[in-house]
Computed example of a mutant assay.
Amino acid sequence: MSLVDLTRKQPLYDQLFDILRDKIQNDMAPGDLLPSERQLSQQYGLSRTTVRLALDSLEKMGLVTRRHGKGTYVSDARHSETDLALCYSFTEEMRRLGKTPKTQVLSFSQEEANKSVSSALGLHLGATVWHLHRLRLADDEPMLVGHTYLPLEMFGSLTHEKVSSHSLYDLLESEFGQTIKTAEEEVRVMTARAADADLLLIPEGSPVLEISRLTYNAAGRIIEFTRSSARVDKFKYHVIHSRD
């Protein structure tokens, strides 16, 4: 039986999430009943609050369904393609699909915003921004590479260590009090440049999805601009149109 490690920096509820996710993927089937909160608390020596946080994360990822008065059941999360229309958080979406997300921070630095970045973030030309360059993987397979820009004036205390060890959106919400409300995306089909192709393990010139995202906080201010290149064989875009 896997146990949580009190010496690790990873939060206890996140460790339990990983343990339960692995059990769901390898030892359980859709419809199976998970142990109760009390049983999990006793089994792993954790508080009920910690267990509840782990179960909340599993439910948020679509891996389990919680039925009041009956218990927590394994959901059917056997889909393999990522729906861009639902992919608000890469980490959460990969976990929902039963995959292990991983982020490699390729660089993290301050720079002056060029015309494109300053216009996107509503800043004056030359304003200082954070530039975060990341490779996103699922089960160690490259999925997308992205450049994220954040206003330094809002997130001055960010560090390489923080962005390397936490989900960016979780960090912006928990440490900076930014409630992420909406995101606006534009998707185009482009050809992969040499540097991106090398990171994505595809031939140079292969088609990729270029995704430009603006993220808004609760006050309606743009707090993030990201431009990503995603492998076309790993993503789909699903939209439902209706008429009144």
Rank of each mutant, 00 (worst) to 15 (best):
F90M: 06
A219E: 13
L135E: 02
D18L: 14
T179F: 12
L168Q: 10
S80R: 12
P207G: 00
D32P: 06
A230N: 05
P30T: 08
Y44M: 03
D5G: 01
A138F: 09
G220M: 07
P142L: 08
G31D: 03
A85E: 14
G146F: 00
T159L: 06
V163E: 05
E112Y: 10
L63K: 01
Y73W: 10
C87A: 12
E141M: 09
K70N: 06
F176M: 01
S75P: 02
I222Y: 05
H131G: 00
E141A: 10
F108R: 00
K99S: 01
T65Q: 13
L55Q: 02
Y44Q: 07
F225Y: 15
S57Q: 13
P142S: 03
L58F: 07
L137R: 10
L201W: 10
E153G: 11
A219G: 12
V208G: 01
K236A: 07
D56A: 13
P11K: 10
D244L: 13
S57C: 01
Y149H: 15
H131C: 12
R231Y: 04
S164K: 11
S116D: 11
D14G: 00
S118I: 05
K115Y: 10
G126L: 08
V117H: 09
I222D: 03
E175W: 11
T82A: 11
S206T: 11
D83P: 06
F176N: 00
A197D: 07
L171K: 11
T226P: 00
G126C: 08
L137G: 07
A183E: 14
Y237Q: 12
D76I: 06
S174Y: 04
H68L: 08
G45S: 09
G62T: 05
I19L: 08
F17T: 01
S41W: 05
R213Y: 03
E93D: 14
D139A: 07
M28D: 02
S109M: 09
V187H: 11
R188M: 12
Y44R: 05
F235E: 09
S229W: 13
S41A: 14
A113H: 05
H238E: 15
R78E: 11
S228N: 14
I211P: 00
K162Y: 02
L63C: 09
W130S: 04
E93K: 14
I223W: 04
V232D: 01
L201T: 14
E112H: 14
L172V: 01
